[in-house]
Simulated scan of single mutants.
Amino acid sequence: MAQPKFAQIKQYIIGKIKSGEWAENSRVASENELAEQFSVSRMTARRALSELTDAGILSRTQGLGTFVASFKSQSNLLEIRNIADEIKERGSEHKCIPEILESMPAIAPIAIALGVEQDSLVYRSVLVHLENGTPIQVEERFVNPAFAPGYLQQNFEQVTPHEYLCEVAPLTEARHTVEAIMPSPQISQWLSLFNEEPCLQVIRRTWSSNGVVSFTRLISPGSKYRLGGHLTFKR
């Protein structure tokens, strides 16, 4: 099946960026130029540019044009998304390395976060997510076994915790906080940080209709990751 024209334009732009022909912050072809080059309407060209902008690959400034965005990976603060999907949308390859998969007694802060009794059994996973072979996020997740009894048996190199939990305990609510931290030596090792640098930490709790499903820490190098979002206000 032939690839849609807007998808061809997206692959063309991603190819130019990957090859280095279009460097970070350089201006990319306009809607009119792309429409003429690919023999499509401006609307089709606009869709390609808009989807790449939403994915954090491009940035658009009214009156100035469209530019290659910073090469930091970007996650949307306003959405709960699967990191594997975000990375693939940027035209990159996602890989996950499970570092820890275990059951453990819930210490007081974890018990409170998950709404379970202290010392009751909870699941813990620590995964490192890579984009094109570069570590960009450590995900430490505590899970209530009542909602995901098969959690530790999953192959997280093939399916992310987000995907699995959305299947067995569909997300109904989430709350998160964001702060800058200095990473521990272990986090620095997992993220391949050889020089001391601040990291971005997102603390997130997720609920299903029956209660708190997971409590998660997402830690990313400040030099390689950013959070963004877009709000539209009704007049």
Rank of each mutant, 00 (worst) to 15 (best):
V138G: 00
V159F: 05
E163C: 04
T134W: 05
Q153V: 12
L127W: 00
E140A: 06
L165P: 08
Y151S: 04
A146E: 02
V143L: 02
F147I: 02
I136L: 14
E131Y: 02
E139A: 11
P161S: 10
S125G: 15
F142Y: 15
Q154V: 06
R124V: 07
G150E: 15
T134V: 14
V138F: 07
N155F: 06
E140N: 07
G150D: 15
F142I: 10
P145L: 00
Y164H: 14
H129L: 09
N155Q: 10
V128R: 11
G150A: 15
S125H: 00
Y164F: 14
V143F: 06
V126D: 02
L130R: 11
S125Y: 00
I136R: 01
L130I: 01
Q137D: 07
N155L: 07
F147C: 04
H162R: 04
Q158C: 10
Q137A: 10
L165N: 05
Q137M: 15
L152W: 11
Q154C: 10
N155R: 11
T134Q: 12
E139R: 09
E157G: 05
L165V: 07
P145F: 01
T160S: 13
E139H: 06
S125A: 15
R141G: 00
Q158D: 14
F156P: 10
L152I: 11
L165M: 10
E140S: 11
N144Y: 07
A148R: 02
R141N: 11
R124M: 14
H129D: 10
T160E: 06
E163W: 03
T160Q: 04
N132D: 15
F142G: 06
S125T: 15
R124C: 15
L127I: 14
E140L: 01
N144V: 08
P149C: 13
P149H: 14
T160N: 08
E157N: 10
Y151F: 15
Q158H: 11
P161F: 07
E131M: 14
N155W: 06
N155A: 13
L130F: 12
P135I: 10
Y164E: 07
G150H: 14
